Amino acid sequence: MAAELTPITDRDVPAVADFLRAHLDHRVPWETTLSAVPWKGGGPNHGFMLRDGRHVVGTLLALYSERLVSGRVERFCNMGSWCVLPDYRSRSILLIKALLAQDGYHFTVLSPDDGPQEILAWLGFRFLDTSAAFVPNLPWPTPPGRMTVSTDPAVIGRTLAGTDLEIYRDHERALAVHHLVVVRGAESCHVMYRVFRHRGVPVYAVVLHVSNPDLLLGAWKPLTRHLLLRRGLVATLAELRIVGHMPPFAFALNDRPKMYRSAALRPDQIDYLYSELACVPW
C-alpha cells in the first residue's frame, strides 16, 4: 500500500506517540520519551515515519548524541522502536535506509528483535559480545564504614567529577535508569542501571554503565545488598564488557543481542549511554 516516508519532527511527536501507544506498548510515555531527551546535542529528527494520508502507519525512532571518543567528537545514532502496520510491512526497509543514509553517524541497535537482526546484519551491522554475569542479590553483612552506597542526588553530584559527573548530569532525568554511587575513601564508582520487570513487577537490575570497574570488583556485596533490601530486586545482570570481570557468586549467561555499525569505532568503544536503554521505560 502507498505510504509517504518523512522525518519525525517535533510537531509529529503527538501523532507518533499515539501510534506507538496503540500498536506497540501502551505503558510507555512515548510523547515524553520523544520530546524530552535529557542531554544536549539533539539530532536532525526523532527518526522516520510512514504516513498514509493523515495516518501514521509505521515508525523507526532515533536518539542522537555527540560523544568524545579517544579525543575526538563522534556522532551517534541509536535506533529505537521499529513498528510498522502489517499492510505496510513491505515498506519497512525504507525507514532504516533513510536512517542509515544520514552521513557521519555511528549506529547502534540495542534491543533488536529476532526478525530485524537478519536485515541489520545484511546492512552491515555487527553483533556486540553480550556475555554477562547473573548475580544473586543477597543480604550480605557489610562491615560499617568500609564502603557506602548512596542514591542521594546531592551525594552523587558532589562525589563525581569531570566526565563522570557530566555523564550523570546528562542522564539524571532519563526515564528508564536509576543511579547510585559506591564510595570507598577517596574513590567512587557511578553505577547506572535499569530494572527488568515481569508482568509489571520489578525483578532484577540490568547494569548499563560503570565508571570504575576496579572499585566495583570489591563492591559487589554492598551493591547487591542495597539492590535487594532497598529496591526489592533479587538479582543483577551485568555484561562483562561493562563491568570488566566476572563477579563473585555469579552465573555466566548471555544478555539480549545488541548490534552496531561503524566504519571507525571498535566494539569496546560502543556503550549503552545516550540510548533508548536509558530513556524508554518499557
Results as ranks from 00 to 15, higher is better:
A2V: 14
T6H: 09
R11F: 12
V16I: 00
L20Q: 11
H23L: 02
H23E: 00
L24W: 06
W30H: 11
T32S: 10
T33I: 05
L34V: 03
K40M: 14
K40Y: 12
G43C: 01
G43R: 04
G43I: 02
G47F: 00
G47C: 00
R51Q: 08
D52G: 13
D52A: 15
H55S: 13
V56Y: 05
G58L: 07
T59N: 02
L61H: 04
A62Y: 01
L63H: 02
E66N: 13
L68V: 15
V69A: 01
V69G: 06
G71E: 06
E74P: 05
C77D: 02
N78P: 06
G80F: 07
G80N: 01
S81C: 09
W82N: 00
C83T: 06
C83Y: 05
V84I: 10
L85E: 08
S90E: 13
I93Y: 14
L94G: 07
L95T: 03
I96Y: 03
L100D: 03
Y105S: 02
H106T: 14
H106G: 06
T108Q: 04
L110C: 01
D113K: 13
D114E: 15
D114F: 12
G115C: 11
G115D: 13
E118T: 15
L123G: 09
D129G: 07
D129V: 02
T130C: 11
A133I: 06
V135C: 10
N137H: 11
P139D: 03
T142D: 14
G145H: 10
G145P: 09
M147R: 11
T148E: 09
T148F: 01
T148N: 07
V149K: 05
S150C: 08
T151K: 02
T151Y: 00
P153H: 07
A154L: 14
V155H: 10
I156S: 01
G157K: 04
L160N: 00
L160G: 02
A161C: 15
D164M: 08
E166K: 15
E166H: 15
E166D: 13
I167Q: 07
R169V: 10
A176Q: 03
H178A: 12
R184I: 08
A186L: 13
E187Y: 09
S188R: 01
C189D: 06
Y193E: 02
Y193G: 02
Y193K: 09
R197D: 02
H198Y: 12
Y204V: 10
A205E: 05
V206L: 12
P213G: 11
D214G: 11
A219I: 06
K221L: 07
K221D: 05
R225C: 09
H226Q: 12
L233P: 00
L233H: 04
T236R: 04
L240K: 10
V243I: 11
H245R: 08
H245G: 05
P248W: 04
P248L: 09
P248M: 09
F249K: 14
F249H: 13
A250R: 02
A250G: 03
L253D: 10
K258L: 08
K258Q: 07
R261V: 10
D268N: 14
Q269F: 04
Y272R: 06
Y272F: 13
Y272T: 06
L273P: 04
L273R: 02
E276H: 00
E276C: 08
A278P: 01
W282L: 04
W282F: 12
